[in-house]
């Protein structure tokens, strides 16, 4: 993977309005594997009693991370969209900790990409959530090749 490609993908992701609103940042990028971080923020709290962030914010983090893993696949699709995403929540994320999602695009057919992702907080041995998803694969059309 070239540094230029890394720079373009990182800038693109960090510029998406909803990713910006969540404060997502690129941590690691290689072929088919991506790690993003999301800082703790009180506006993301889902349980006012404990200060734990809402599952929806974790879903948004993992959906984004999974989509980037597809675009970073060595076949370099030009775009992708989520077909389905299943998220399993193992435990509440610790309040006041940045959380990290790591996604891997482990298989790609002509039209479909398969991804799995894990979300962790500072306790990296105990995942907060995992996800598996199927994504569309947008390729340059035959006509433009």
């Amino acid at each position: 993977m070239t540094d230029d490609f890394k720079k373009i993908v990182t800038q693109f992701i960090e510029s998406l309005p909803h990713a910006r609103a969540l404060g997502l940042q690129m941590v690691h990028l290689e072929d088919g594997v991506v790690e993003l971080s999301m800082p703790y923020d009180e506006k993301l709290i889902g349980d006012p009693r404990t200060g734990v962030i809402h599952g929806g914010a974790v879903s948004a983090l993992m959906d984004t991370c999974s989509g980037v893993a597809v675009v970073a696949h060595p076949e370099r699709p030009v775009g992708t969209a989520t077909i389905d995403l299943r998220i399993d929540y193992m435990r509440a994320a610790n309040p006041n900790q940045t959380i990290y999602a790591r996604a891997e695009c482990y298989h790609m057919t002509r039209n479909v990409a398969f991804v799995r992702a894990t979300t962790m907080d500072e306790d990296r041995d105990n995942p907060v959530a995992t996800a598996t998803g199927a994504f569309t694969v947008e390729r340059l059309s035959e006509a433009t090749k």
Partner: peptide
Amino acid sequence: LHGGATAAFLEV
């Protein structure tokens, strides 16, 4: 709409 925002809305 961001797919993550859609997922979050459904979960909410």
